[in-house]
């Protein structure tokens, strides 16, 4: 079925490209829609093997940095990332076998063992793409390969994702993420790529170097729990809204345990990006000693950024809340303030 889908994508792109390049507003051919193209792009990692050099420009700390790496993918959902530059990340290795992720940091001689970062193996649910407004921006060549340039905007109208989707494989050869203020958050593009390689499976098995410190880290379970189940799992009431300002709706939550800290983690998504709201009784976690004070949210409210992700944490009715996500700080604070005001009686 997957092969048939890939073949369908290739045929559609081959025939439809000329029509698309002439600006056809809602390209449809034999029932193939933009939604289906996006869906094929989403499952391309499950059906295509490749190895390529990628350049990533991304906010790290408070400055944009350009990172170079070798990205290797092998069906189904296995990934290897070898970071080449800048100096601070050179040698960093990420090996994801679809079940768990090893992250080796050479300068610390440490291996972090955590959950897989591969997207869920099944195709995205049918309603998932309905959260996007899709449009075709045109046809462009990237490293000598023809691509369809797709724009995905959340229905909420905030932010945008652009993908340059390879006509034959469905792999995104270039990707851009823009925040609600149209600021570029991330640009990633291949400078070379090779498909149909016989990528050895051994590349996706990590053997920690001798003497390396190994740190096991838990993570989110694969399945999100409904609110009542999550409340039972963490042992305290959550009383959180089903939606957040900006068009984010609750997908579900999971308990997160780290040492003595047990937190409820709730995921909200607008289609393009996820926000995570953390709830913990205030008596179990105090205010962090860093970050900028946010008087609007009361004493002990702090906000700080960590590269592409930002976080704001505050106390509200005996709970410590933290909201984290890839949004500009002003937007994140706006949502946190609305959430705080909304919860007051």
């Amino acid at each position: 079925m997957i092969r048939r889908a890939a073949a369908g994508l290739a045929i559609w792109l081959a025939v439809a490209m000329p029509a698309l390049s002439q600006g056809s507003p809602e390209p449809l051919l034999d029932g193939v829609t933009l939604q289906e193209v996006a869906r094929h792009a989403a499952i391309a990692s499950q059906i295509v093997d490749y190895e390529g050099t990628k350049v990533l420009s991304v906010l790290r700390g408070d400055t944009m940095e350009t990172v170079t790496l070798i990205e290797t993918r092998k069906r189904p959902g296995r990934t290897r990332l070898e970071f080449l530059s800048p100096e601070g990340v050179a040698g960093r290795l990420v090996v994801d076998d679809g079940l768990q992720t090893w992250h080796y940091e050479p300068r610390l001689h440490t291996v972090f063992l955590g959950p897989s970062l591969a997207p869920p193996p099944e195709a995205p649910p049918a309603g998932w793409l309905a959260e996007y407004h899709l449009s075709l921006l045109g046809v462009e060549e990237v490293i000598g390969r023809r691509t369809a340039v797709l724009s995905l905007r959340p229905r909420s109208g905030q932010g945008e994702r652009r993908l340059w989707i390879d006509r034959t494989t469905g792999v995104a050869l270039r990707a851009e993420e823009r925040d609600p203020n149209d600021g570029l958050v991330m640009v990633a593009y291949f400078t070379r790529i090779s498909f149909s390689l016989n990528v050895p499976s051994a590349l996706f098995h990590m053997r920690p170097p001798a003497g390396a410190r190994i740190i096991g880290q838990g993570g989110l379970p694969e399945r999100l729990l409904a609110l009542p189940d999550l409340e039972r799992a963490v042992g305290f009431a959550l009383s959180v809204p089903q939606t957040l300002p900006g068009g984010y709706s609750l997908r579900g939550g999971t308990p997160v345990r780290h040492g003595p800290l047990l937190t409820a983690s709730l995921e909200y998504a607008d289609g393009a990006r996820s926000l995570v709201l953390f709830v913990v009784p205030a008596g179990r976690a105090g205010p962090p000693g860093r970050g900028a004070a946010v008087p609007l949210l009361g004493d002990g409210a702090r906000a700080f950024g960590a590269g592409a992700l930002r976080i704001v944490t505050w106390e509200d009715r005996g709970r410590r809340l933290a909201l984290a996500g890839p949004l500009p700080m002003a937007d994140l604070l706006g949502i946190a303030t609305a959430l705080s005001n909304g919860s007051r009686p």
Partner: peptide, 8 residues
């Protein structure tokens, strides 16, 4: 998010 860049 299956469409988010894996290297990112």
């Amino acid at each position: 998010d299956p469409l988010l860049d894996r290297a990112f």
